[in-house]
Design a protein around this nucleic acid. Structure first.
Lengths: 338, 338
DNA sequence: ATGAAAGCGCTAACAA
DNA sequence: TTGTTAGCGCTTTCAT
């Protein structure tokens, strides 16, 4: 590896001391004449300052750490976009790690971020990483947990999440309003946020005199599991004499899988069954899918701002969901039919 | 910000010198007894070593830098996945920056990566960044340019790309084989790689006695432009008495836009017009879209491997495209019709 | 096997 | 305004 030009060499070339070069670079008090000599040396030698050393001195990097569970989900994509925009506006880079839902890697990844002395940390990891995150926040690194709650957060640890119960209520109101009466729901695992969405859905349905029996609820980790879950839901409900006329998916991650299972079954949406899912994405409009949306870009921005501003205490920022009605939940041509 | 525990404090706590702690941490020669005393101190004090300082000493970070143009494209998503997997296997983190197609930011971002002394750099930026990348490679940082060529690369600068001409030929053969005769094509800007795809398409069509007139070719930067381009293509061809019976999109970025323009026009795929696009994505199967695929995950892996292995010279790795036939290019019900 | 001391590239006191 | 000096937290000779 070619030897790097150091501040000392620039100093020698410009005929000044290293301290003076540092001052020129960081806007200290220097003569215009000296400054121009230094800049000349900088460009002559193609000097690229070492951000690592600077950070060592500052005790902290200017980089923002991000540990995500699932890059491929549209929600996370927009989240990253929001984070990245704020980072760019602050001259920060983003140190990124994707865990691909491998929980056992998450803690190690967070530890690495800590070792790199990131300026702040934004995560969507599971609660098995809580202890590590807590220590990081207590150590003075602002942390933001996205998409879930955090029990008894220390100062410097913030959460950003959706009003999950409201999302469920929104779903319930929409479906009930369109005359759907027998609803099945597929969730992503049985994490708290997912459960709150289902709870909201259940309460909302109850207000309309509709029930959501436990057997009409299934959770899946993988796409394959989701497809099987849909089939089981469909068959189970029919077996109980309550064939489903709507299926709800509480996560954008499994939208494709649920949709595939439905159409693979030969069901027509919305005639045979209504389909309501979560998180908007580029194809949703073309496919005519009704979706619950989260302001994910805005959530990313807020997360990064919390890191950058590092307010005192522990913020719990809750965003409200919205619903974009499209054809997939229209009143069916044959209401009540299977 | 709480004071961080340093190696010196661990040393004091364990009753040894800092050098010994360092040896324990990095696998030097130490007594088992000393080692266990040190580890005890490490966990007692919750010591998190400073990766920044380590890197300063090593002259280089262990992080891999990635500058991407467009996170939202499925191609880049899989590319990142491949990079991230290799990075994880090597204990590296990925420093990530998305330029959102803002060319003027790209050079600055690359400069920042250089300042952070990344172990290597992977970019999908435009050729206005070439000078900066070249200097980085010459300075000893392995660089990988993805999805395009690089003129006269120095040692340590590698390229990874698709055989674009072959992609075009694949498209031509497929469409000609299905009886399509009047083809229009939408590209992403007029970058060299896109031009090569069109050239391959044109040559391939010629082999089947078909022409691809310049007027049947349009390039777009944004989705809106793409939609307009499709309309113009459709109208122009009809005006020339050669109504299109197939439309090709050479970039995954604009697939939605082209598809929307087509269906928005009231055209049925593939009866009225065949649609062939680039880059597979989760919904392509559900929508029945025929696509040209690139092994994007594998390309990401290779890119990261080139960074990690840093072979001498300058590699130019070319991957072959494939075609996944689906309904969108089936022989239309009314062949030759508009 | 261990410690003392030097130094990685930079910044920030302190003098001059 | 500028240079000298002393670190930042760590690794690595070189002695012992």
């Amino acid at each position: 590896m070619a030897k790097r030009v150091t501040i000392g060499e620039v100093a020698a070339d410009a005929g000044v001391s290293a301290a003076t070069v540092s001052r020129v670079l960081n806007g200290g008090a220097v003569t215009e004449e000296t400054a121009s000599r230094v800049w000349a040396a900088v460009s002559r030698l193609d000097y690229t300052p070492n951000a690592l050393t600077r950070s060592v001195f500052a005790g902290r990097s200017s980089t923002i750490g991000v540990v995500m569970r699932d890059l491929s989900s549209p929600f996370f994509l927009d989240l990253i976009r929001g984070i990245d925009d704020v980072a760019a506006a602050n001259g920060s880079l983003v140190m990124f790690a994707n865990t691909f839902r491998q929980r056992d890697h998450e803690t190690a990844l967070i530890q690495m971020m800590d070792e790199h002395r990131v300026r702040g940390l934004i995560v969507t990891t599971g609660d098995q990483t809580d202890a590590r995150i807590r220590r990081m926040a207590e150590g003075g690194t602002p942390c933001v947990v996205v998409a879930r709650r955090f029990v008894d957060p220390p100062a410097g640890l913030h959460t950003i999440r959706l009003d999950d119960a409201a999302a469920g209520a929104l779903m319930a109101g929409h479906l009930a309003g369109r005359g759907r009466t027998s609803i099945g729901v597929v969730t992503s695992g049985d994490r708290p946020a997912q459960r709150e969405r289902v709870a909201g859905l259940r309460r909302g349905l109850a207000e309309h005199g509709l029930a959501l029996p436990g057997e009409a609820e299934a959770s899946a980790e993988t796409e394959r599991e989701a497809e099987r879950a849909v089939v089981a839901l469909l068959d189970g409900a029919r077996g109980r004499g309550m064939p489903l006329d709507a299926i709800v998916c509480t996560t954008g991650r499994l939208t494709v899988a649920v949709h595939t299972a439905l159409t693979g079954r030969g069901l027509t949406i919305p005639d045979d069954i209504a389909f309501l899912t979560t998180d908007d994405f580029p194809w949703a409009a073309a496919l005519g899918l009704t979706v619950i949306t989260q302001p994910s870009y805005e959530m990313g921005r807020r997360a990064a701002e919390l890191v950058v501003d590092n307010p005192g205490g522990s913020a719990d920022v809750v965003f409200e969901p919205d619903l974009v009605p499209r054809g997939s939940t229209d009143r069916g041509g044959r209401p009540g039919s299977r």
